[in-house]
Amino acid sequence: MELAGKRILITGGSSGIGLALAERFAAAGARLFLTARGEERLEAAVLQLQAIGATVAGVSADVATAEGRALTLSTAQAAMGGIDILVNNAGGVRAGRLEEIAEAEIEAMITVDLLAPILLTRAALPALRESGDSLVLNIASGLALVGAPFYATYAAAKAGLARFGEALRRELKGEGIHVLTAYPTATDTPMMKSSKAGPELGFIREPVAAVADAILEAVREDAFSVIRGGEAREKMIRLNREAPEVVDQRFLDMKAGLAEAVKGHSAL
């Protein structure tokens, strides 16, 4: 896909992967519209992008709510005159043993990580159809491919988002709307700051710039997916498919340490 002149809406665009993608899309000549819950951080992101010459606007909105989705779409279309690319990047996580996570936190993860992208995409489809050459980019997670203990709900939501994207891609094939799913591993973003899981537990945080560069390349190549983590991740995915009991044992060996490291991991 040629990005010059494309009108791109990015949810959760004020930091992390969303902001890094915005920087790269801007450099490629795209027009941007960002949405995020935090007004101050959003304003800072817009100013940061304008400083590098981006054409960008934004609105503070919570896409986990019907009102936030409606505001996001109406203001984005008014600002850009339409939408060519929707980036479903906003997300949230709360790690820990399932029985120790509050019901409200479980519902929040399902809503922001799965329900919101589905409903926002549904509402954006008329604008994407009008474009004629459009894209839905869903930011899932490596945990959608290999589930890890203490992330049961998050993994479920992200796996749901991945299959949503796959099914929708096939539903829309031949209609001018492509769907791409990204599977980042642990990435050095604000969402990961409260996690203490490190390399000793197999959690090596990838620079956000590397993740954004890979996603940008996948967008340009009209890829179906982009999976981060290199050869080690590929091996884990293959092992999880062919010998899941081996993966189970690996997690059992580290379970106590992992439980302690991620018990405070929360970004909702």
Score class of each variant (00 low, 15 high):
3 L>E: 10
3 L>N: 04
4 A>S: 12
4 A>W: 09
9 L>H: 02
9 L>W: 02
10 I>D: 01
11 T>I: 12
12 G>K: 00
17 I>N: 01
18 G>P: 01
19 L>G: 00
23 E>I: 11
25 F>E: 03
26 A>R: 01
28 A>N: 07
29 G>T: 07
32 L>V: 08
33 F>Y: 13
33 F>K: 02
34 L>W: 06
34 L>N: 03
34 L>H: 02
38 G>P: 02
41 R>D: 15
41 R>G: 15
42 L>W: 06
42 L>M: 12
45 A>M: 11
47 L>V: 12
52 I>H: 09
54 A>S: 11
58 G>N: 04
60 S>I: 11
62 D>F: 05
62 D>K: 00
63 V>L: 04
64 A>S: 15
69 R>Q: 14
74 S>W: 00
76 A>K: 01
77 Q>F: 06
80 M>E: 10
82 G>N: 09
83 I>N: 05
86 L>E: 13
88 N>C: 13
89 N>C: 11
95 A>V: 07
96 G>P: 01
96 G>A: 10
98 L>M: 03
100 E>T: 04
101 I>S: 02
102 A>K: 01
104 A>L: 08
105 E>G: 04
105 E>D: 15
106 I>N: 01
110 I>D: 01
114 L>R: 01
115 L>W: 06
116 A>I: 10
118 I>C: 12
119 L>I: 13
123 A>F: 09
125 L>A: 09
126 P>Q: 15
127 A>Y: 06
127 A>I: 11
130 E>S: 14
135 L>R: 05
135 L>H: 00
140 A>W: 00
141 S>I: 09
142 G>E: 04
142 G>C: 09
142 G>M: 05
143 L>D: 11
148 A>I: 12
150 F>W: 09
153 T>I: 15
156 A>G: 08
160 G>M: 12
161 L>A: 12
162 A>Q: 08
165 G>M: 09
168 L>Y: 06
170 R>H: 13
171 E>V: 10
172 L>Y: 05
177 I>F: 08
187 T>S: 02
191 M>E: 13
193 K>F: 12
198 G>W: 04
200 E>I: 09
200 E>A: 13
203 F>C: 12
203 F>Q: 05
207 P>K: 00
207 P>H: 02
214 A>E: 13
216 L>M: 14
217 E>R: 00
225 S>T: 10
228 R>I: 14
229 G>M: 08
232 A>R: 11
232 A>K: 05
233 R>K: 10
236 M>Y: 07
238 R>P: 05
238 R>K: 10
243 A>Y: 09
247 V>P: 00
249 Q>E: 15
250 R>H: 07
251 F>T: 06
251 F>H: 10
251 F>W: 14
258 L>F: 08
261 A>W: 01
263 K>W: 11
264 G>W: 00
264 G>F: 06
265 H>N: 09
268 L>A: 09
